[in-house]
Nucleic acid binder design. Sequence first.
DNA 1: GAGTGGTCTAGACCACTGG
DNA 2: CAGTGGTCTAGACCACTCC
Lengths: 229, 229
Amino acid sequence: MLAQIGQKIMALVQQGVFTPAKPLPSERVLCEQFSVTRITLREALGQLASQGIIYSEPRRGWFVSPPRLVYNPLKRSHFHTMIKEQGRTSQTEVIEARQLTVINSICKSLGLPVGSSVYCVRRLRRIDERPVLYVEHYINPAIFPALLQNDLTQSLTDIYHANYNIHYGRVRFTMIPVAIPTQAISALKLSAGSPVLSIIRVNRDQNNRIIDCDYEYWRHDAIQIDVEI
Amino acid sequence: MLAQIGQKIMALVQQGVFTPAKPLPSERVLCEQFSVTRITLREALGQLASQGIIYSEPRRGWFVSPPRLVYNPLKRSHFHTMIKEQGRTSQTEVIEARQLTVINSICKSLGLPVGSSVYCVRRLRRIDERPVLYVEHYINPAIFPALLQNDLTQSLTDIYHANYNIHYGRVRFTMIPVAIPTQAISALKLSAGSPVLSIIRVNRDQNNRIIDCDYEYWRHDAIQIDVEI
DNA sequence: GAGTGGTCTAGACCACTGG
DNA sequence: CAGTGGTCTAGACCACTCC
């Protein structure tokens, strides 16, 4: 029965009866329609959610997931351009930007001595209003002096290029499904323990110097990774 | 309370009280320990599972997830070598191998006319006995005549090289979290609707010809993707 | 055959959202 | 303030695994 409910809801999504535009009917309504308990119904909804077909905004309702963004982590392209090319709209929001002393693993990623102080920029990025990516950029301040005085809602790629004449070279990334870190919960409108896709990227410039590293946390249902070499 | 149970179990995993060696105590025992209902307990277990910390084998019990395999989809390396380098053991099992007429999307991936007949090899791969990867290889028979007469538990890379003098060149892959396809359910010992990581790879040879494509379905908790260029 | 996880019922209270 | 999802209780039966 659990599987049947899942298939029925999936069919309604594919038929366009349920759309990303408005929430699904309330759980109590769906219970009645399928003649099951809320527990059972929620189990089915949860399975669809873990497949990325629907998602819930806490205490607001269940929604059909919009199409995934096609994302190539090897291309350090402009976020907004990439989104626009796929017919979507995007926003960037700076949550915090400051210099701080960071933990050893980040120093190591950046190739700096332990206990180094670096720029940290925390941003939230949305696609079609929906928050999909929480990212922390850790940036070598020796390479980008006074970086924080720029408008950080802009593309870092642009700032690097325009103000410092630096552009991206080699990239290395690690991708792993994890539980959402606490600092990202409210921004991404998820709940503690939600699975997200963590992508840690170490970026180099044209001279092969490590210039920054990004800790990205994506909604697991928001992207499709696409890589070609 | 849900979160607390999750944290307590996670702590027990980190302390090595619960290990991959044997199942966790039964749900009914854990219920009593944490003074909650089975529904609540299972909710907590489910969250840990979706984070890849534990997993269940249907009707057998809950287990601590072994460490993830570090996997670089751009390297068409030997599966067994890669596993061995990470201190693990591996097995390959051929589920089926035959020539058949395939659907258009696969023809398109292979750059063949619609309705083409190709070799299809379905295999299951295990790490330390645990099934982690179900893969369907679709192979251009014009390039590898009589391929199916080889021992297909071996590395295809080796067979290609030794018998046809062909080795891998460029690779393109798409990665997306999806529900497990029905043909892979029993092999991977998962249940319908389980989330898995689908990696579709299109492989070329040294002369940039498309030679085969792989449809891989990984347990979502079994790998960590690592790419460097 | 005992024990396990998988599924399901029929309720209940709470915290929060949105008009 | 009405309605929503989030959480929780206290049971039950079934299909399967393993001894």
